[in-house]
């Protein structure tokens, strides 16, 4: 996978989160992983097509998802990851992916994104790539959001 394709996703996260009332997030680290990821509790997958094909997965703990949903809803308490909070996280994933898609367009790549697929639970693993993929751990006010990216140019 081309490392240059990762930046649009990181830039999207860094640009979008402050618009929603968060302090600017920072990149903690980036690692290469093989095939499988374990769910941390809340996993959102968004697919890419056209000149870029692949998936991006936002993986976080239930507590982080509730913190994000609460901040997005002006500090409203989110004691449970309910329908409204799920909707907030799906919407966020959509915004992040659409923003990344815009960044990719500026690199000359025409892309389209699927609807986000939100999955809840801890007892499952996710395979997003036949081989290796990149995982970026983003720090968001002390919470960790893992962005797993497996995308390739489609010739």
């Amino acid at each position: 996978m081309d490392a240059k394709l990762v930046n649009p996703f990181i830039e999207a996260f860094v640009a979008v989160m402050p618009m929603l009332g968060f302090q600017p997030p920072t990149k903690k680290n980036m690692v290469v992983k093989n095939k499988y990821a374990m769910s941390r509790g809340v996993v959102v997958m968004v697919g890419f097509t056209k000149q870029l094909r692949g998936n991006v997965v936002y993986n976080m703990e239930d507590e982080t998802a509730r913190f994000i949903a609460s901040t997005m809803m002006m500090g409203m308490p989110v004691p449970e990851f309910d329908a409204m909070a799920q909707s907030a996280i799906s919407e966020l994933s959509n915004m992040l992916s659409a923003n990344a898609a815009t960044n990719l367009t500026q690199m000359g790549l025409d892309v389209d994104i699927s609807t986000p697929n939100l999955t809840i639970g801890e007892g499952f693993s996710v395979k997003i790539s036949e081989s290796q993929y990149l995982v970026i751990d983003m720090d968001l006010q002390g919470h960790s959001v893992e962005i797993a990216i497996s995308v390739d140019r489609n010739f």
Partner: peptide, 21 residues
Amino acid sequence: MRITPPGTFFGSGVKMTTQKL
């Protein structure tokens, strides 16, 4: 319409939302 590459989930009690669909 186009399709994305597959993402595969396996385990038990995997709950996927159908919100807004």
